[in-house]
Design a protein around this nucleic acid. Structure first.
Lengths: 342, 342
DNA sequence: CTGTTAGCGCCTTCAA
DNA sequence: TTGAAGGCGCTAACAG
């Protein structure tokens, strides 16, 4: 009872027409009579014919599959970007393959290779934290025509289109908001500075201070992870050192949450004594009884834009040479209780 | 400057050996001399050869791709299941294609078809809320060999393996916990009863009441959506009707959150006056200042189990006929402040 | 309007 | 240990 599905050959035999006719009828070719088309379609349905896209892809060179590589799929940010990409590309007949790098550049390399072997039509990726060297990506660019699109966590590589938010501006407006609320000794929890996004947020923070005649102090810049514990530890460190800020701009919502928890434990009032603003606008930030201010990265939009950039690239490709695109989205600041002194 | 990638033909020409030799060398076939293997591998690397899995798949009938259909990818639950599936299957060389049904059975059907056309080796799915009729799924079972595996939101179809949690038990232990805490007039926020999971949670709730000699009251069973607003509305309805419970078991964490918000607004004390327990163990439940009790569905484990069921099925398939599996995972209750009276 | 045929890249049986 | 050749299912160029 092997249910092998019917091919166009089976249909052609049954109908005593050529496979070409069947293929054309199924593809609604203009020079096939309506009668045969109808007949072919009908028997195709009867025989439960399913087109084999593998064969089609082998012939055409297009699989209509794209790959996405992210550190982990079950985070609000990445899963939202994936949603955006899927919703943008699905109507155009593309399928989306997802791979997780687990923040490991070696796994990232492996996925890149297997995706290429699978003949995907394009690859979307956010590099892992351990991706310092980019030769493996450069070499794909040099030896294949497969477009690569970076989103959020990008690297500077000529010829690769990117979709990001303006993290510099995100850092700037978050900091400026704190300044406008009257805070003066603002501390920054930075993430992994190997990633451009965190560098940019840090730079935005610095510039906002400078523009408002506040001094940038090294002891106010703390490199933390993106976890609750990291935020807790950061507060402990600061208060142990008696280097006490009156506001915190955290590049991670989770670290911001940890900070809030630890401050509360120490009976330090938010936002009266210390204000807190995070980054990413994780769902939980607005659910808290003390809602946490945050900067939204508009991840679904980011995904859709990445999808669009890819679609444009595919079009261009079939008609000449293509230019890299740099899409920069505007971050959205959400001001909540944790940073409203007034 | 067309960067067409090298094929085994290119290698065979360059080396003056047959393609068969190249193919075998690349696949580490035992009856090829080590010398030629070495040579082939070396030139393959030089020529930047990449195996075309499309051709391989066309020949072998295995794409090493599986499809996953979920309502939306950017929810904690579904993205975690996807993570589990990916992590289980990736080491075995599989890629994971994701599709979103948007809770629409017609989109679900379309995805099912395109996945089949793409020749995936298996399909994992959680049905949409609008999936009442299951003919489209049954017909795949009847006409193809592609295994389908339901997770969480399943339908009863002979021959389809399922991986779920014991929702009945989840409903039971959540309710029993409330009873043990001394609550007696327990209200249930049920989800869409077209889905088995919500029916089962409701039945578990009912049985727990019965087993503890409490009466099941119709007015205490409210069909709500799974949103914050749904929870808010439910509270409004209850209090307007003066049909006031002393505890709420919500089948959705979001509705539970909405309930908490509305109760707080009405100055009703949680858990002293009204206890609340939700379902899903969404990350935010534990972050709240008043953490919300919840029942965890162990989604990553669910995904891994689903992956295992698929792998077993693939093995069985190549050696005879296969039996459907029903994996039922134990739900984990997390008791937090929102339901601890004592 | 329809048929014949080559070929996409790979694997694998049969033959040497 | 290696080679020759067919075929996986489909499309498109070339013929009629």
């Amino acid at each position: 009872m092997n249910k092998k599905s019917a091919t166009i050959y089976d249909i052609s035999k049954k109908l005593n027409v050529s496979v070409a006719t069947v293929s054309r009828a199924l593809n609604d070719h203009p020079r096939i009579s309506e009668a045969t088309k109808e007949l072919v379609r009908k028997t195709a349905k009867e025989m439960n014919y399913k087109q084999n896209n593998l064969a089609k892809a082998l012939k055409s060179g297009e699989t209509k599959n794209v790959g996405i590589i992210v550190p982990y799929v079950n985070t609000n940010f990445f899963s939202s970007v994936i949603r955006g990409i899927e919703e943008e590309l699905s109507p155009h007949g593309y399928h989306v393959i997802i791979c997780q790098s687990h923040e490991d550049v070696n796994i990232e390399k492996k996925h890149l290779n297997t995706l290429l072997n699978a003949q995907v039509d394009g690859i979307f990726m956010s590099v892992s934290k351990t991706t310092t060297d980019t030769e493996h990506i450069q070499s794909i660019l040099d030896t294949t025509n497969t477009p690569i699109i970076f989103f959020d966590r990008k690297k500077d590589i000529a010829g690769i289109s990117t979709v990001t938010i303006d993290d510099y501006r995100g850092g700037y407006i978050a900091t400026e908001h704190l300044i406008n609320e009257g805070y003066r000794n603002i501390c920054h929890f930075s993430g992994d500075l190997n990633l451009e996004i965190y560098q940019n947020r840090l730079n935005g923070y610095k510039q906002a201070l400078i523009d408002h005649k506040l001094t940038v102090k090294d002891e106010n810049i703390i490199t933390t992870g993106s976890s609750i514990d990291a935020g807790i530890d950061a507060i402990k460190t600061l208060w142990d050192k008696k280097s006490v800020p009156d506001a915190i701009f955290s590049s991670s919502d989770f670290a911001a949450l940890g900070a809030c928890q630890e401050l509360k434990k120490r009976k330090i009032k938010i936002p009266q004594e210390v204000a807190v603003i995070g980054f990413s606008n994780e769902p939980f930030t607005q659910f808290m009884e003390l809602p946490i201010s945050s900067v939204d990265q508009t991840p679904v939009t980011m995904g859709k834009m990445a999808g669009q950039v890819f679609l444009e690239r595919v079009k261009e490709n079939s008609s000449g040479i293509s230019i890299e695109k740099k899409v920069i989205l505007e971050p959205q600041i959400y001001i909540r209780k944790s940073s409203k002194r007034k």
